[in-house]
Design a binder for these strands. Structure first.
Lengths: 183, 183
DNA sequence: CACTGATCTGACCGATCGGTCAGCTCTGAC
DNA sequence: GTCAGAGCTGACCGATCGGTCAGATCAGTG
């Protein structure tokens, strides 16, 4: 019965990803994950300090890319370049990590308030400003927020669309919808 | 101590709306609502059959408008007219009921699967097809879904924006972003 | 006055949650 | 052969959840 394999850690991650995608983070219990893996709930908590640690590890790669996108946007010389980099970078992020993003489906607000994700909210703010181009205009901010939230909320549903096709469609949408920055 | 007023029903509804808006449907317990009202949890369940019944009653007006919009879309002679009616009707719905929609923030997927909201999902499907204009094209469907989800997810955050301004911004966004139907 | 029905309460229920803990088993090093 | 430690288990914990129930309170009616 006892597992001699130290790969349980990875199996738990994979099982958690499947369960989170199916029923959400809150809607998935540690027992659900344990059952999917075929081990006890205590075994899950042997490999991870707590439930949030599983989510944090699953999201780590996506968060790292988001953080580097934030840096790249800050390095741009002007709002026009920042908007272009933000749009392309965010679409790339959404397409590449749409599986991971889907795990958070419908739980962004709550999860972003957890201690481990506090800085994500600030990055999102800057991303919205960059996308808006003219963040002082309410309409521009509304546009950027709708598009950001819409892509984040739905990209996980397009698991069967090829990366290239999805990326092209989203980028075309952003180019049509976003308002160009001033001057 | 005992309330002689039969207006508790309304007070519970108002309190539930506040709590749902603050912490979401799942994140709000019957005890939370009772505390906000200043009565016992049992009193809440005296006025409502169960927790879902509170949400159902809160959402009833918005759902009724959504249903009538669905009918109006079906009555249109062609895809171009259907797209126009869908866009204008959905924006109007989102603006007028952005308070109610905010209650569902981040819980659409789970809540739509509850028995009382089963038909909403089918209406949403038809709304997306109408907005897409050319639903046979993947890119058009992606665009429509992103915009629909984005507006639904964010409109509750614009409580301080006047109806007119928010409606204009959203409608302008849809007109820029949606692809015209074939003919 | 007695009675009724609407309103509301506190105590309680079973289920489930995230998390803890003592201890078992097996493997590899010495 | 012995021992340490990694991996894992089942039993258990306190908290919280939605929901139930018997009964208290009170207004209105006759």
């Amino acid at each position: 019965m006892a597992r001699t394999t130290p790969q349980t850690h990875g199996e738990i991650l994979a099982a958690a990803a499947r369960r989170f995608a199916a029923t959400g983070y809150r809607g998935t219990s540690l027992q659900d994950i344990a059952t999917e893996v075929g081990c006890s709930k205590a075994a899950v908590l042997y490999h991870f300090a707590n439930k949030e640690a599983i989510l944090t590890e699953l999201m780590a790669p996506a968060i790292e890319v988001l953080r580097s996108l934030d840096d790249r946007i800050a390095d741009q010389p002007g709002p026009a370049a920042a908007q272009r980099v933000a749009a392309e970078g965010f679409v790339d992020l959404a397409v590449r990590f749409r599986g991971e993003i889907a795990l958070l489906r419908g739980e962004f607000p709550e999860l972003l308030q957890q201690p481990g994700f506090a800085h994500i909210q600030q990055i999102s703010e800057r991303l919205i400003d960059a996308l808006a181009g003219r963040p002082e205009r309410a309409a521009a901010r509304i546009t950027a927020l709708v598009l950001l939230a819409g892509i984040a909320e739905t990209c996980g549903q397009f698991a069967d669309v090829p990366d290239q096709e999805l990326g092209d469609a989203l980028l075309a949408l952003l180019r049509r919808a976003l308002e160009p920055p001033a001057h």
